[in-house]
Amino acid sequence: MKWILATFIALLAVLWHIGSGGDRWSLIPDTPLESYILQQIRLPRLVLAACNGMALGVAGAVLQLMLRNPLAEPGITGISGGAAVATVLALYLGQFDPVSLGLPFIGMLGGLFALLCLWVFAGRYPQGVRIILVGVALAAIFGAIIAVVLNLAPNPFAFQEWALWLMGSVANRGWPYVWLVLPAIFVSGLILWWQRRFIQVQVFDEQVVETMGFETSRSKFMLLLAVALLTSVSVVSAGIVGFIGLVAPHLIRLLGIRQPLSIIAGSALGGAVLLVAVDALVKSLNTRVELQLGVVIALIGAPWLLVLLVRQRRQHA
């Protein structure tokens, strides 16, 4: 029953997303112009939103399992901050045009650099808590750098453009961004499949896992690499979209899914549906300028986080 309801909600979100955004809700184009809009604007936006939601949902689920922390999400690793810093710096230094396709690669390099920092500072055999602490420190540093670069923006227009990009959006991206995101999701999926046995035993204590025949250091790095790819590609294609990585795995757990691999698979679907639904909401809201995705998700996600914290406190009381 839960699955039928989830599928129905997913279908509803897709239809809502494709049909919304114009003067009237319409699914089937009547004119060549409407057909063009559907194929070149609405469909890539839908697919990009779904891919981003999938990427962030999976990244969040993997981190929550690996770090054994229900509040973990891609932002706390500092990887999204690293990708954002690299992109904003590239724009500031004028090396890339905001619509250049070279820019996302710079952003991904930034994300991978953040992963390298995380690994070096967390130590060769990092425990979950250490990864979180180093990640939080890196996120703070990258956040400060972004603030400095925004402060030094050459003009108000550049400031506004960069700030809006950072707030996250999948509007006006087109198919090239979809083709950029899909390979990263595919490679991350392969890495996660390769490490599926290691993921499954994350239900046990960290010390027990270390005696279960895994090269734990290598496996942890591979999982973080998958998270870095997913997070970086999300940042470079849609800006910083928070909370999906936190909320999606918990939604899936609420459906009664307990197995680690199922939580990850479910979070992929849950994240995709969530982001598509929120983007459809953004498109549907009758505002003077379209609200940024990251802001709307934060408005929904932050109260969710508070609810989680209150629930956790009650459980421990």
């Binding site: 399992l65 239900v203 046990f204 204590d205 027990v208």
Partner: peptide
């Protein structure tokens, strides 16, 4: 190996 404190992280 059985550690001193057993922790389980998901309600499997």
């Amino acid at each position: 190996y059985l550690p001193q404190f057993s922790q389980f992280n998901e309600p499997v």
